[in-house]
Amino acid sequence: MTFFPDTAVPPGRLAVGVVLPSRAVRRAQRLGLAAAARHAEQAGLDLVSHRHRPAPGEPPPDAAAALAAVAAATDHITVVSEACAPRLPSPDRTAEQLAGLQRIAHGRLVLGVGADSGPTPRAAAGIPYEPHGPYDLCSPHNPYDPYDPYDPHDPYDPYDLHVPYDPHDPHEERERRTDAVLRLLPRMLAGERVPPPYAYGPGCAPAAPAAAVRVPPVWIAGGTHAAVRRAALLGDGWFPSPAPAAEVAEGTVHLAELTAALGRKPPVVAVGAVAALGTEPGLPGRADIAAGLAEAHGAPAGRYAEVPVTGGAREAAERLHSYCGAGVSRVLVGFAGGDWRRQVELLAEVRDLVR
């Protein structure tokens, strides 16, 4: 089996996956990345995701090498590249990396496109970095929403890759590059030699992989208006991770309205969750997990109260199943503590109840 289509997930049911352990967890529990991916597959989970964010003080990981190791170690589980930033490398390098990963995964790759990558990779790509603050999912007052594709007077026109842009606006720069690469991916991965988009400036080489491969599904990560619109325009999936079910439902309605206006099929909706399953001593409780999420995202303390997944298999399944009413068909779970292998085995029991 390769990547399963959305029709493989019946309405009202969920495909369940896991976020692979961080470098710190792998070191503490003597667990290799490939071994973790195999364990998730053997437990019966549907997806496995690799998160590219380094821990404080650690060098950025080689995301392509890590994904290649995960894909090579598994046979049928879907491999999700979470929070990839295709705008940062040149288009030809992006196409080459994705084509190689898709071959190794035998068509099981999903490309997650994130909203932020930090100052180090941006500096390497020549893009200014300005950190942004917290935002509310689909808030009409979100100040970090960089463009409106339905406003003909907006200076950022996502429908034209070859218009002049302001190189001194970091938000406009990174959004242009992201959309440019996403628009070109189908042609690049089909083996076509395409001119570089205007956003990459002169001197950028035409892009095409050595041989054609199937374009991986693209999941747009983020809860901003811009992320929802990009998912409607260019994505195969929307990944607002993590968020309460009510907020996801609001975004899903907006997404459906936009795709209907564009004449596109609505993208799949995947959501992230944070779990501490079972009764293992020392596991964090719901309040602790919610407080940690709020602190990490700079959000009010109560915003994530409904997000944590805890307890036994049935309790956890009920919590995850609440997302079905929000239009969600896939969930990727990260663990807040405990033995990672055991948490995966417990999550597989939850999967059997919701799948």
Rank of each mutant, 00 (worst) to 15 (best):
D62M: 10
A40M: 11
F335I: 07
G203Q: 03
A64V: 15
P128V: 03
P308S: 10
R355M: 10
V271T: 07
D154Q: 02
H162F: 15
G222N: 03
C324T: 15
Q343V: 12
A249L: 02
Y159C: 11
V80L: 15
A40Y: 07
E173K: 04
V228H: 02
I127M: 05
E257M: 05
P186Y: 08
E250R: 09
Q97M: 13
E280N: 04
L293H: 01
P186H: 05
A115G: 15
G282S: 05
S81P: 02
Y144K: 01
R176F: 06
G133Y: 10
G311L: 05
A71T: 07
S49G: 10
T7P: 03
A40S: 12
L353T: 02
E280T: 11
A287N: 04
H225T: 12
E41S: 07
R30G: 12
L320R: 04
R303K: 15
D46L: 01
E345I: 01
D46N: 13
L109G: 03
A245P: 00
P186M: 07
L332G: 04
G298F: 07
L45A: 04
Y144V: 08
V163C: 11
A125H: 00
W238I: 00
H321E: 15
Y323R: 06
P209T: 10
E349K: 14
G114F: 02
S329M: 04
I104N: 05
R30M: 06
F335K: 11
R264S: 05
S117A: 15
V228L: 13
G201T: 01
L283V: 05
V350S: 08
A205K: 13
V344N: 07
F3G: 09
G282M: 03
Y200S: 01
E41I: 08
A348H: 12
I104G: 01
H168L: 14
A125E: 05
S22T: 15
A243G: 15
A123P: 00
G235N: 14
L137M: 09
A210P: 03
G311W: 03
A246Q: 12
S49W: 13
A270N: 00
C84P: 01
A205H: 13
G191T: 06
V268E: 14
T178H: 09
H297M: 12
F3I: 10
T120I: 13
T94H: 09
V16F: 03
G338N: 06
G325N: 08
P143A: 06
V307H: 11
R183N: 14
V194H: 01
V18S: 12
P281N: 08
E280V: 05
A124Q: 09
S322V: 01
Y147C: 03
P86E: 11
A105R: 03
A71G: 13
R23M: 10
I289Q: 01
T279S: 14
V113W: 02
S90L: 15
V181E: 05
P21S: 11
A313S: 07
A211K: 04
I104M: 08
A125S: 07
T94P: 02
T94D: 02
E130F: 04
A36N: 14
